[in-house]
């Protein structure tokens, strides 16, 4: 047991190291100078004093350590990390950890709400679709799933805003994250994510319903409720895998939904920082996200082994069989 834990921990640290290193190199390789972005953006009047510009740019570069080699910069970042310091944002000058901590709760709230909705919709309509396979209700559900998977998110988001905020006046457009503002972005994300889960539930339930034991149980006249419960139980495992993937995606930020609903989450913040070349923020964001994904994976595995004791024998294989 201890051996397994140590191995998993080592793997996690290795992944973190790889991800941050690759990102570090990539952001530095990509052209575009953060200093120029900061100094040059929307100046009121074009300057003729280029010497002053150069001097200020050099000053900022050395202040942020951008004049050092990439290796030194990375080592400095890792050293900071060991002291739990992610550095300061070039754009706002505030600690990256503070900024991420400010934005993460809004993202987490939205992610959990959206995931719950996805699961409820997925289980209910997936089961409905499987039970009535081939009937009109099954077809309707599948058509809606295909449509939802093919419509751009902004269409759903803007139509919702137009209706609920402007026409009906029941939704408030502001820049705050509050419970009363949560439901519309959550519903939007729930709707786009649900088809995936509906699909998995339907397919697995159909397969399970086709199994011999179910057929014979049916033949023996066992109560459908009991059979459904049994079938549902074995469907839960793949659903769990889907849910963990979905949660990982939601935590790293739903950029379009956040931006349309002015939800102060981490996705829009990360994208802005990427466009502004705010290196410490990109770096800190990646670190936090990789950690989150690793944690979600570990958690999923743990839940898996609780739900399905066979795992302990088979090892990781089954836990990933539906990834």
């Amino acid at each position: 047991m201890v051996y397994v834990l140590v191995r998993k921990l080592l793997a996690a640290v290795l992944t973190l190291f790889c991800a941050t290193l690759i990102l570090f190199v990539l952001t530095r390789l990509s052209p575009g100078d953060p200093v120029k972005v900061l100094l040059g953006r929307s100046a009121e009047v074009a300057m003729s004093d280029t010497a002053a510009y150069q001097q200020k740019a050099d000053e900022l570069r050395s202040q942020w350590g951008l004049d050092q080699s990439v290796t030194d910069q990375y080592l400095r970042w890792v050293t900071g990390l060991l002291k739990l310091d992610l550095g300061n944002s070039m754009h706002t000058g505030r600690p990256v950890s503070t900024e991420i901590a400010e934005r993460l709760p809004a993202t987490a709230l939205l992610a959990v709400a959206a995931l719950l909705l996805q699961l409820v919709l997925g289980l209910v309509f997936g089961a409905l679709s499987a039970i009535s396979a081939g009937k009109w209700s099954d077809h309707v559900i599948r058509w809606i799933c295909v449509a939802l998977a093919s419509i751009p998110v902004f269409v759903i988001g803007l139509v919702f805003l137009l209706w609920f905020a402007v026409r009906l006046g029941v939704y408030e457009i502001s820049s705050e994250a509050s419970l009363s503002r949560l439901w519309l972005p959550a519903v939007t994300l729930g709707l786009i994510g649900a088809p995936q889960i509906i699909r998995v539930v339907r397919a697995n339930m159909l397969a399970e319903l086709g199994q011999l034991y179910v057929q014979s149980a049916l033949a023996r006249g066992l109560a459908l409720r009991l059979i459904i419960r049994q079938v549902m139980r074995s469907t839960l495992l793949p659903v769990l895998t889907m849910a963990s993937l979905s949660l990982a995606a939601l935590i790293s930020g739903a950029v379009v939904v956040e931006s349309i609903f002015a939800w102060p989450g981490i996705g829009k913040y990360a994208l802005d920082s990427i466009l502004l070349k705010d290196y410490p923020v990109i770096q800190g964001y990646a670190f936090v996200m990789v950690t989150a994904v690793i944690l979600i994976n570990l958690l999923t595995e743990a839940v898996y082994s609780i739900l399905d004791p066979r795992i302990r024998r088979k090892g990781v294989a089954t836990s990933e069989s539906t990834a």
């Binding site: 803007l158 905020a165 402007v166 006046g169 457009i173 820049s175 349309i260 609903f261 002015a262």
Partner: peptide, 18 residues
């Protein structure tokens, strides 16, 4: 308030809040 999306800003004005 920062509402970065242009269409959302327009809708926020139309909703009467902004």
């Amino acid at each position: 308030e920062e509402i970065s999306d242009g269409q959302t800003r327009a809708l926020s004005a139309l909703s009467g809040r902004t």
